[in-house]
Design a protein around this nucleic acid. Structure first.
Length: 267
DNA sequence: ATCTCAACCTGGATGC
DNA sequence: TGCATCCAGGTTGAGA
């Protein structure tokens, strides 16, 4: 899916919707909508106040109610324009005053949920999210890594520990930090934690600058591809020579996810 | 406490 | 050309 840089890019692209009221909704795939298929309709007539993000979760603030959108693996939110047809696999359409917002999702792992402002702090997914990976203070990052015996790959992917990283940015960060994905977090020296922190921040910052990674399906809020995939050093490059030492990049399933790394540079 | 695996889906790439 | 198999940006829950 869209990881933090992709979701943030989309959030910014959708800014023109702020201040507009939702007029009607079209739901083609009811199972994506929570807590029940009709919930979206209760937002009609309400004005969008702002769009926020936590980790990979988008929050559309309609004042007394919020719409939470998680894009899963292949979800996309694309702002409609005159004469432009909905993207393939469009499942939900939110008709705002001046433009429709299309929610498309090939694999259908994403979801849209209506929550009252009062319920939000108790929402199971929202409440479990750790601090946002972009901009987390170093001390906080240090504390969370030191507190765990889990392997780096599993820990960084865990949204309860740190929110926003996914398979791409974890592999890219670990490579840049020179750390092996199976290293127990607790075994890192303070210098290594510092290196990892800087790598994560730098990867996210640069990916956001390039409007995300388009490996397969990802498109931004305008329906266009990002460009950070051109700067990927290891993700999707198994067997190719390590950009630093030329050793063939290794591939292994770690924490249930395909993981590419340099067996020589990453220790 | 931590790990592995299956499940939820569709479609592109690869191999015979 | 056709068909089988594997793999893919995420998350959750069961069982070891």
């Amino acid at each position: 899916m869209p990881e933090l840089p992709e979701v943030e890019t989309i959030r910014r692209d959708l800014a023109p919707l702020v201040g507009q009221s939702l007029q009607r909704v079209t739901v083609k795939l009811p199972k994506l909508v929570r807590p029940r298929p009709g919930a979206l309709r209760t937002l009609c007539g309400h004005v969008l106040q702002e769009i926020a993000r936590r980790g990979k979760l988008l929050l559309f603030d309609f004042r007394e109610k919020l719409l939470l959108v998680h894009l899963g693996l292949t979800g996309a939110l694309v702002l409609g324009e005159d004469g432009v047809s909905p993207p393939p696999h469009t499942q939900v359409i939110l008709h705002f005053e001046k433009a429709p917002l299309f929610y498309a999702d090939l694999r259908q792992f994403g979801w849209l949920e209506v929550v009252s402002r009062e319920e939000l702090p108790r929402h199971p997914f929202y409440a479990s999210l750790g601090p946002d990976a972009l901009g987390i203070p170093y001390e906080e990052f240090f504390r969370r890594l030191k507190a765990s015996g889990r392997r780096l790959k599993a820990l960084l992917l865990d949204q309860k520990v740190l929110s926003g990283l996914g398979n791409i940015y974890v592999d890219e960060s670990l490579f840049r930090a020179g750390l092996h994905p199976e290293r127990p977090a607790r075994s890192l020296s303070p210098e290594e934690i510092r290196r990892l922190y800087e790598a994560v921040q730098e990867v996210l910052r640069r990916a956001l600058e390039l409007r995300g990674s388009s490996v397969r399906d990802y498109v931004d809020g305008r329906g266009e591809s990002g460009a950070f995939q051109e700067e990927h050093l290891v993700y999707g490059k198994r067997g190719q020579p390590c950009p630093r030492c030329r050793t063939p990049l290794a591939y292994k399933v770690v924490a249930g996810r395909g993981t590419t790394f340099c067996p020589r540079c990453q220790r």
